[in-house]
Amino acid sequence: NEEPLPEGWEIRYTREGVRYFVDHNTRTTTFKDPRNGKS
């Protein structure tokens, strides 16, 4: 039961299956979860 991502964020996966987060607001990507700060 995960809380929803902030507005404008999306979860994607690399070809290796590593989860990362896309911030469409700033057009950046990060491996850090914007909901809780954990990677």
Score class of each variant (00 low, 15 high):
1 N>Y: 13
1 N>C: 10
2 E>H: 11
2 E>K: 10
3 E>N: 10
4 P>E: 11
4 P>I: 08
4 P>M: 09
5 L>G: 02
5 L>H: 02
6 P>A: 06
6 P>H: 03
6 P>V: 03
6 P>S: 04
7 E>L: 12
7 E>G: 08
8 G>N: 08
8 G>R: 05
8 G>Y: 05
9 W>F: 05
9 W>E: 00
9 W>Y: 05
9 W>P: 00
10 E>K: 04
10 E>T: 08
11 I>N: 01
11 I>T: 07
11 I>L: 11
11 I>Q: 09
11 I>K: 06
11 I>C: 07
12 R>G: 08
12 R>P: 00
12 R>I: 06
12 R>K: 12
12 R>S: 06
12 R>V: 08
12 R>Y: 08
13 Y>G: 01
13 Y>V: 08
13 Y>A: 04
14 T>V: 03
14 T>D: 08
15 R>I: 13
15 R>L: 13
15 R>A: 14
15 R>D: 13
16 E>P: 05
16 E>W: 12
16 E>K: 14
16 E>N: 14
17 G>R: 05
17 G>K: 06
17 G>E: 04
17 G>P: 00
17 G>A: 04
17 G>Y: 04
18 V>L: 13
18 V>F: 11
18 V>N: 08
18 V>R: 14
18 V>Q: 11
20 Y>W: 04
20 Y>A: 01
20 Y>Q: 03
20 Y>L: 06
20 Y>C: 07
21 F>P: 00
21 F>K: 00
21 F>H: 00
21 F>A: 00
21 F>S: 00
22 V>D: 01
22 V>R: 06
22 V>K: 05
22 V>T: 04
22 V>F: 15
23 D>I: 01
23 D>H: 09
23 D>S: 04
23 D>A: 02
24 H>M: 09
24 H>P: 05
24 H>F: 09
24 H>V: 08
24 H>G: 06
25 N>K: 09
25 N>G: 07
25 N>M: 07
25 N>D: 05
25 N>R: 06
25 N>Q: 08
26 T>D: 04
26 T>A: 06
26 T>N: 10
26 T>Q: 06
26 T>V: 03
26 T>E: 06
27 R>Y: 09
27 R>D: 14
27 R>E: 14
28 T>E: 08
29 T>S: 12
29 T>F: 15
29 T>I: 15
29 T>R: 11
29 T>Q: 12
30 T>R: 03
30 T>Q: 08
30 T>S: 09
30 T>G: 04
30 T>P: 01
30 T>L: 03
30 T>A: 04
31 F>Q: 07
31 F>N: 07
32 K>N: 13
32 K>I: 13
32 K>P: 02
32 K>T: 12
32 K>A: 10
32 K>D: 14
33 D>Q: 01
33 D>T: 01
33 D>M: 01
33 D>I: 01
33 D>K: 02
34 P>V: 01
34 P>E: 01
34 P>N: 01
35 R>N: 03
35 R>P: 03
36 N>R: 08
36 N>S: 12
36 N>M: 09
36 N>K: 10
37 G>Y: 11
37 G>S: 11
37 G>E: 14
37 G>D: 15
38 K>E: 15
38 K>V: 15
38 K>D: 15
39 S>I: 15
39 S>F: 15
